[in-house]
Every structure is written in structure tokens, then in C-alpha cells.
């Protein structure tokens, strides 16, 4: 790809050496130019805030007390790690992210298997199944909190035989996760369906001719083929869901206490309700470090998947 494209762009051989090296340099900038606006914009808008977060995290700074800003080195970090609520919330974040992602992957796999057949109305079924993923998360969370999980008039209790169980206050974390799973299962389904449809049909056919049953075909052919897609689904789901804010904010406000708060919500509380800039910045940095650990793994996976998906890399 690279070589074929570079050939026509090479400087004409007739030109003298000095001009050619200068034009090669110009050519380099001409090639880079289209990239620069996007790159500069992204660096300014996304990287400067992170540098500022680092800087703020080393200061004691509360917006309620103007002039209180001063440098305290790592005191905020010490405070963050001594904060037992922070640990609860970090644990909630892990449970919420991994729990929702794994449940969504399993459900998504089942749905993808159901859809990977030829049947009447397949397109309609797929469209119906995709819809929860598209609903504005804030609206989806409102629906779950009210029309679905309400103790008296909620559909869930009606379906379960007219009981009046208060899901949101009894199982706040699970209630939030229910909304997340409902929204993310369609994504996993689409991803895994793409995986199933990229499976070589003749392999399955050959196995079937050899007398392999549906289950052994699934375990020995389908699952290994889907592995890459399953990994990708888990990693991407985790990246998006670790930032969950809407559902927590709308359904439980993190409560009762911090029972259903995750890190984004807790940092939001500290920053915008407690006005503690220093500590919320320090928590932000901790989250970034945790995310970098996951993301290094994720990036490698995305790159590998992309290479395998037929692009050059």
C-alpha cells in the first residue's frame, strides 16, 4: 500500500539534487498538513486538561474558599487512599463495569446465535434489538427508574406477579446494572454477529458432514473463531462503561450512601457538590492510571484486530 502510493509522488528524476531534497521536505509537510488541524485540536482539547489535572492534584484547593489554593505535594493522594468511601466506590466501579460487560456479552452471544440464521423478519428483529442501544442513556435510565422498576406501577413487578418489591432501594447497584446491560447487550450482539458472519461456512459444513453435533461445532469451531470478537467486546465495553455516569446520576444518585456510586459519579460529587478541586483531581489521576493499565491491553487488541480485519498496519 505504502510503496505503490509513494511511487507516483516521488520527485521527478530530472530535477537537480538540491531542489529535490528541499521538495522532498516540502512534500513531507504537504503530506502531513491535512493531519495537523485534527492533531493540534485533539492535543489542545484533550491533553491540556489532563496536564492541568496532574497539576491540580498536587494542590489543596477548594472553590468555596477563594485564595485557599496552595501546593501540598502528594497529600491529596494520601487522603484519597485513606478514604474508605473511595475504596468502596472503586470496588463498585469494578463490579459495575465488569458485571455489566460480562452479562451483556453472554446475552449478546445468545442473541447473535439466534440471529445468525435465515428466518422471516430477520432485519426487523435486528432493528428491534438494536434500539435499546440507541436510546439516549439519560432517557433510558429514567425509564428504568420509573416505568420499569417502580415498586407499585413498574412493569417488572407486574411481570413478576404483581409484587411491590422496591428494586432501586434494595438493589441499587443491580438496578443501575440492569439499565446498562439492557443498553449494551445490543452492541455485543452486533459485534458477535459480525464475528459469526465472518466464519467460513465450509468449515462448519465439513464438520457437519463428519457428523459433529451442534454443540461440538459451537465449542470447537464457533467459540475459537469468536474469541477475538469476544475479547474486543469485553475490552470496548469496559472502556465505555467504566465512564458510566448517566445511569448512576439518574437512577440512584449513587445512593443509598455510596452503595451504587462509581468513580465518575464520586469524582463529580467531590468536584461539583464538594468543590474540592485538589482531591477530585487526585482521584481523576488515580482513575487515569488504572485506565492506562487496561487501555494498554485494549490498544494492543484493537490494533491486532484491525490488522487481522484486512487493513494494512
Amino acid at each position: 500500500m505504502t510503496t505503490t502510493l509513494e511511487r507516483p509522488a516521488a520527485p521527478p528524476p530530472a530535477s537537480p539534487n538540491t531542489t529535490s531534497s528541499r521538495s522532498a521536505r516540502t512534500e513531507g509537510w504537504v503530506r502531513r498538513a491535512p493531519l495537523l488541524p485534527a492533531l493540534v485540536f485533539t492535543i489542545v482539547v484533550t491533553q491540556i486538561p489532563f496536564l492541568l489535572t496532574l497539576w491540580y492534584s498536587l494542590q489543596s484547593w477548594n472553590l468555596v474558599r477563594p485564595g485557599s489554593q496552595h501546593f501540598v505535594w502528594f497529600q491529596n493522594y494520601v487522603a484519597v487512599f485513606a478514604d474508605s468511601q473511595f475504596r468502596t466506590v472503586a470496588l463498585n466501579t469494578i463490579v459495575m463495569t465488569l458485571g455489566s460487560v460480562l452479562i451483556a456479552v453472554v446475552l449478546g452471544l445468545l442473541l447473535a446465535l439466534l440471529l445468525d440464521r435465515h428466518f422471516i423478519g430477520r432485519g426487523v428483529v435486528r432493528t428491534l434489538l438494536v434500539t435499546p442501544f440507541l436510546i439516549t442513556p439519560v432517557a433510558a435510565a429514567l425509564l428504568w427508574k420509573t416505568t420499569l422498576l417502580d415498586p407499585t406501577y413498574g412493569l417488572i413487578n407486574f411481570v413478576l406477579g404483581g409484587q411491590t418489591f422496591d428494586w432501586v432501594s434494595q438493589f441499587p447497584l443491580a438496578s443501575v446494572m440492569a439499565a446498562l446491560v439492557w443498553q449494551w447487550t445490543p452492541f455485543m450482539m452486533l459485534l458477535l454477529l459480525a464475528g459469526l458472519q465472518s466464519m467460513p461456512g465450509d468449515q462448519v459444513e465439513a464438520a457437519r458432514v463428519d457428523g459433529a453435533g451442534a454443540w461440538s461445532i459451537f465449542v470447537e469451531l464457533t467459540l475459537p473463531h469468536l474469541r477475538r470478537f469476544l475479547e474486543l467486546g469485553i475490552v470496548l465495553g469496559a472502556i465505555y462503561l467504566v465512564n458510566t455516569f448517566d445511569a448512576v446520576y439518574m437512577i440512584t444518585q449513587g445512593g443509598p450512601g455510596t452503595a451504587s456510586a462509581n468513580l465518575p459519579f464520586y469524582i463529580y460529587q467531590r468536584a461539583f457538590l464538594g468543590f474540592d478541586i485538589g482531591q477530585s483531581a487526585a482521584m481523576g489521576v488515580v482513575v487515569v492510571i488504572l485506565t492506562i493499565i487496561v487501555a494498554t491491553f485494549a490498544l494492543r487488541l484493537v490494533f491486532r484486530s484491525f490488522g487481522a480485519a484486512g487493513g494494512e498496519s
Binding site: T46, Y56, I267, S280, G284
Partner: peptide, 15 residues
């Protein structure tokens, strides 16, 4: 940049 949590940037962005 997509993998860094937004929540870690919100404080300076707000300021």
C-alpha cells in the same frame, strides 16, 4: 484519547 476517562478532565475543563 478515547480511553482516558472524561471524568479525569472535567475538573480543569470546568475551571
Amino acid at each position: 484519547t478515547k480511553m482516558l476517562p472524561v471524568v479525569a478532565a472535567i475538573v480543569p475543563i470546568y475551571v
